[in-house]
Nucleic acid binder design. Structure first.
Length: 674
DNA sequence: GTGCTCCCTG
DNA sequence: CAGGGAGCAC
């Protein structure tokens, strides 16, 4: 099984989706992936410095850029480097190599945003210098661009003098700016010392914890105060991270001033550059994890990854089991036994149903075929809401089930979480199930919205507004199981149409749409009525909000029931007709409760066998069998329409459906109840 | 045109 | 069990 981290490694494109993180130096490759893309994650713009202070201060800094002309001269090469790095970082394809990366190299790219601003400042200053140049030499009026033509024109000797003045002026200006630069650099280094004393030093000492977070907050605020209180310090601090990490040596060498950074500062910086201790200095990720918000995000990411992995395992096991014993595990049995693989085929159906019932789906929930998903949808949505918005109001009504996209965890909205790769082999429904049920149900305190549930459906649910944490029958209140059984449901066993099925179905049951329980009820109704009208169906499914799709679905169910019924009748009638002896034929056309035909019918319409088959149904079935038999014996089956007469006969044998079927949920077996 | 049913197919 | 086509009745 892939570890979550391994899975992250498989998606390099999602690892560092933002340049900020791609450029972040960190020896921990996984840590980047949990870093939200915000300036607040930067060590100097920590989570405690939000827009209210950090961005304002940064804005102040940008407004005051012009106060530091010294930074902008005599550093053309550096500026080019900045832009080169910028282009590199923008154009670079995020990769695991670039994320964990070499500390020394990555640290040079770390604060690209700082470099950008630095470059912008320099660019402005260069433009300003050019303008000054033009002003000084405005008699030439054409500036540097027309310098050649000025040289050619010897008649304008006075202009040459002006050019000399201009050159001298530029020279003076450069010298002044150079001095300012040196001065600013000195202040920069001084500020670096402060920063690393206050910030880096304490981080090295700490080992994590809330107290340290508070300290960190204070320290970061101190740093922020430095930014806002001292303009030059602000500039210096603004560039300090990159310079500390990558340019300090160069600057020291260039300035011939290696002693500006004291030994302790150098040690701190070295520590920061040092392998496993990198996080101590940058602490972007781990610091976030230690914070409350970061911890929640980490937990969410962990949940997502665990869910996907569990989904994969379940899928593999199911497939492996199906492969090893295909005879015993047909798709139907798999779906019935696992209750998970039900969704394997439902995606396709949902697509078509979505198209067919696009209008109705705005209001009506999907039909029975989608019910395994859809019944879980409300709880799933709750789970998703819970994952994304832990404090969201659980009483909010569930959103209508979107066609297919809603099955995806909304990772796209949460860039913090890694998205699944497109080639993810986890079947979506499986993923959906495991994702939502494993974690949504693990949220034991998750309150269910009663509006999400089929109000009268499975009355045991109405006594439990809070969904059980896990649908383990052994953990359920016995009374609930009894209620489930009383409702025509069978508890335990390997099939899903037991109390466990009702349990998870009840969790997402809706007044709109049909559930497996409705299917079971319809089958039991077939014992009494083979040709129920749509109005009759509406009478006996009061917990269903009928629309065209639902009505057609129910009618289709009964059509399928009849089809199966008649197929079996014809099959056994032909079998009886083949019997040689009259006594055998007589036995064959009799439908005793010990007969094979009875067993098949009971298995089909009363699979859980928790409902007593009405005697009337046995009689009608025997009549149908005899009609088929006689038609076959008399050769009427040669007529293409020979079945119609039988259908007409059977259609007149419907008996009234018991009033117990008028109640919502599965009918109680009054016969067995006495 | 709509609703219902049967038949066929997957 | 669902989807779709065809036929029939209203």
């Amino acid at each position: 099984m892939d570890t979550p981290s391994d899975r992250f490694h498989q998606q390099p494109s999602q690892m560092c989706p933002f340049e900020l993180y791609r450029n972040l130096p960190d020896s921990n490759p996984t840590s980047h992936r949990f870093s939200p893309g915000s300036l607040a994650s930067h060590p100097l713009f920590g989570p405690h410095m939000h827009l209210s202070n950090a961005s304002q201060r940064w804005g102040n800094f940008r407004q005051r850029q012009g106060l530091f002309p010294g930074l902008l001269v005599d550093d053309d090469v550096g500026e080019e480097d900045v832009f080169a790095k910028r282009e590199f970082s923008v154009g670079a394809t995020p990769s695991p190599q670039c994320c964990p990366g070499d500390r020394g190299q990555d640290s040079a790219r770390e604060p690209e945003d700082w470099n950008q601003n630095f470059a912008r400042v320099k660019r402005l200053r260069i433009n300003s210098a050019l303008r000054n140049e033009e002003e000084v030499g405005r008699k030439g009026k054409k500036g540097r661009k027309n310098g050649a033509s000025v040289k050619i024109d010897e008649r304008k000797g006075a202009e040459q003098g002006n050019r000399r003045e201009s050159r001298e002026g530029r020279k003076r200006q450069r010298q002044e700016l150079k001095l300012q630069l040196e001065e600013t650099r000195g202040k920069l280094l001084e500020l670096q010392r402060k920063v690393w004393r206050v910030y880096g030093g304490q981080r090295i000492e700490k080992k994590g914890g809330e107290e340290e977070q508070e300290d960190e907050a204070l320290n970061l605020d101190e740093v922020a105060d430095m930014f806002s209180n001292d303009d030059e310090a602000l500039i210096s601090a603004g560039f300090s991270p990159q310079r500390c990490s990558s340019k300090k040596n160069n600057e020291s060498n260039q300035n011939g001033n290696p002693g500006i950074i004291p030994e302790e500062t150098s040690m701190d910086l070295d520590l920061e550059l040092n392998g496993d201790q990198v996080w101590l200095g940058c602490s972007l990720v781990r610091g976030e994890w230690e914070s409350t918000e970061g911890g929640q995000k980490f937990a969410q990411a962990l949940k997502q990854e665990l869910a996907s992995v569990v989904a994969q395992v379940i899928d593999r096991v199911v497939r492996l089991y199906a492969e090893t014993d295909p005879s015993s595990v047909t798709p139907a049995t798999v779906s019935m036994e696992t209750g998970v693989a039900i969704d394997l085929n439902s995606e396709r159906r949902q697509r078509s149903d979505t198209v067919a019932c696009v209008v109705e789906q705005v209001e009506a929930l999907p039909l029975i075929t989608k019910s395994p998903q859809d019944k879980r949808a409300p709880i799933a949505q709750s789970g998703q809401k819970d994952l994304l918005l832990p404090q969201s109001n659980p009483s909010l009504a569930p959103l209508p089930q979107p066609p297919l996209s809603a099955l995806f965890p909304p990772r796209s909205k949460d860039h913090f979480l890694p998205s699944y790769s497109p080639d993810n082999s986890v079947p979506l429904p499986l993923l959906h199930y495991t994702m939502q049920n494993l974690f949504a149900r693990s949220l034991s305190s998750l309150p269910l919205n009663k509006d999400c549930l089929s109000e009268p459906f499975m009355d045991f649910r109405s006594h439990n507004s809070v969904f059980p944490p896990l649908p383990l029958l052994g953990q359920l209140d016995p009374s609930l199981l009894d209620r489930a059984r009383d409702g025509g449901m069978r508890g335990g066993g390997a099939t899903v149409d037991g109390a466990d099925a009702a349990l998870y179905l009840a969790a997402g049951s809706s007044q709109e749409g049909l559930s497996p329980c409705h299917l079971k009820k319809a089958k039991l109704m077939f014992f009494y009525s083979r040709y129920p009208s749509s109005s009759t169906l509406k009478t006996f499914f009061p917990d269903v909000k009928f629309n065209r799709c639902v009505t057609s679905q129910l009618i289709k169910w009964f059509s399928n029931f009849r089809e199966f019924f008649y197929i079996q009748m014809e099959r056994f009638a032909r079998q009886a007709a083949r019997e040689g002896l009259a006594s055998a034929r007589e036995r064959a056309v009799r439908l005793g409760r010990d007969s094979e035909l009875y067993r098949i019918l009971n298995m089909h319409y009363n699979k859980s066998n928790d409902y007593q088959v009405p005697e009337r149904f046995v009689e009608v079935s025997e009549i149908a069998l005899r009609e088929f038999y006689s038609a076959i014996q008399s050769g009427r089956d040669a007529d293409p329409c020979w079945k119609k007469a039988i259908y007409k006969i059977i259609s007149k044998l419907d008996s009234p459906v018991p009033d117990s079927f008028r109640l919502p949920g599965c009918p109680t077996d009054t016969y067995r109840m006495g």
